[in-house]
Simulated scan of single mutants.
Amino acid sequence: MTMTRTLGRSGIEVGAVGMGCWAIGGPLWGDGGQPYGWGEVDDDESVRTVHRALDLGVTLFDTASNYGAGHSERVLGRALAGRRDRAVLATKFGNRSDEATRRWIGTDPSPAHAVASLEESLRRLGTDHVDLYQLHINELPASAALDLVDTLEALVTQGKIRAYGWSTDNPASARTFAEGGPHCAAIQHDESVLRDNAEMLAVCDALDLASLNRGPLAMGLLTGATRNVGPDDVRGRAPDWLVWFADGRPTPQWSARVAQIREALTADGRTLAQGALGWLLARSPRTVPIPGCRTVAQAEENFGTLARGPLPAEAFAQVERLLADLRGAPVG
């Protein structure tokens, strides 16, 4: 039986590991030629990857209006045609992009944009509702996020969304937002074996929220990736927030940390990626990791975690012992 989790107070049940759909969006560009995508993709392979994920027990698919300037939503909609009833769809709003030029053109936290962006997402996804609609501006002041609550609650009433959330790494902001309306069900935040956010998990516990874990594999570092990535890949010209890579390669400092915990993560025969995802499942009953996949092979590895379940208690304790020392040491 596939391991499942509940999306907080929404009661929506999902496979305990979801699929992140940023990478299948293909290229997106920002100011000065900054890449915000993961490079060119094969759409047919992306569709096969979604289908394989479904076969392996994945039900949650997490995308955003600006992933590939809408391309991720289009590909996901194509992949789920005739399969919509098997999927829990999560998308995001707040980042604006131009589909014709594949360029990011800024943010818009207004209620009007939330409504308009949803209509565009529904059209691209080929559906009449999304299950989880998430604010996608990490550092937005909590007061501005609260201005969206009435609009989001109205969208629930209209049946266009079932629940909503916020992709933010700020626990205080997440708490304020979640206390603002009854249908806030999840917080998406950076969470991995290399970067724990215990305070955010405490907020999720206190307010009955799901913890959607973006970056669960540290942008590929926790897959053992060592190859160079191209100039159209966000890791090839890493923004300040992307600490795992420099000049298209994993940094020696973070690679060394992965090496130090690899044995504990893989002790029961898992791959490194499965160990990292298993650590998240063992970390809290609220976590739902959402690793990205671009190929069927990646889906088979990542979502093989659903059959293996959480990291065993002994291995989790060993990782924690190692991390207690590592987290106190400087990186860089």
Rank of each mutant, 00 (worst) to 15 (best):
Q134N: 05
L135G: 06
H136P: 04
I137E: 04
N138H: 15
N138P: 05
E139R: 15
L140W: 12
A144W: 11
A144N: 11
A145H: 01
A145L: 07
A145F: 02
L146T: 09
D147W: 11
L148S: 06
D150L: 08
T151Q: 06
T151F: 04
E153V: 13
E153M: 12
Q158H: 06
K160G: 05
Y164W: 06
G165V: 02
G165Q: 01
G165P: 11
S167V: 09
T168Q: 00
D169M: 08
N170S: 06
A172F: 00
S173I: 00
S173H: 08
R175H: 09
A178K: 11
E179Y: 10
G180D: 10
C184Q: 09
I187E: 02
I187P: 11
I187G: 08
Q188C: 03
Q188A: 08
E191G: 05
V193A: 03
R195I: 04
D196N: 13
D196Q: 14
N197Y: 02
N197H: 10
E199T: 13
V203Q: 09
D205R: 14
L207M: 03
L207Y: 10
L209M: 10
N213E: 00
G215N: 14
P216M: 13
P216Q: 13
P216A: 15
L217G: 04
L217A: 09
A218E: 06
M219Y: 15
M219R: 15
G220Y: 07
L221M: 06
L222T: 06
L222F: 14
T223W: 01
A225V: 05
T226D: 15
V229L: 05
D233Y: 01
V234Q: 14
G236Q: 01
R237N: 12
A238Y: 02
A238L: 05
P239A: 10
P239C: 12
D240W: 10
W241Y: 15
L242V: 02
W244K: 00
R249K: 15
R249Q: 15
P250E: 12
T251E: 03
T251L: 04
P252E: 06
S255N: 04
A256K: 01
A256C: 00
R257P: 05
L265W: 07
L265D: 09
T266F: 03
A267R: 03
A267V: 07
D268H: 02
R270K: 04
T271R: 02
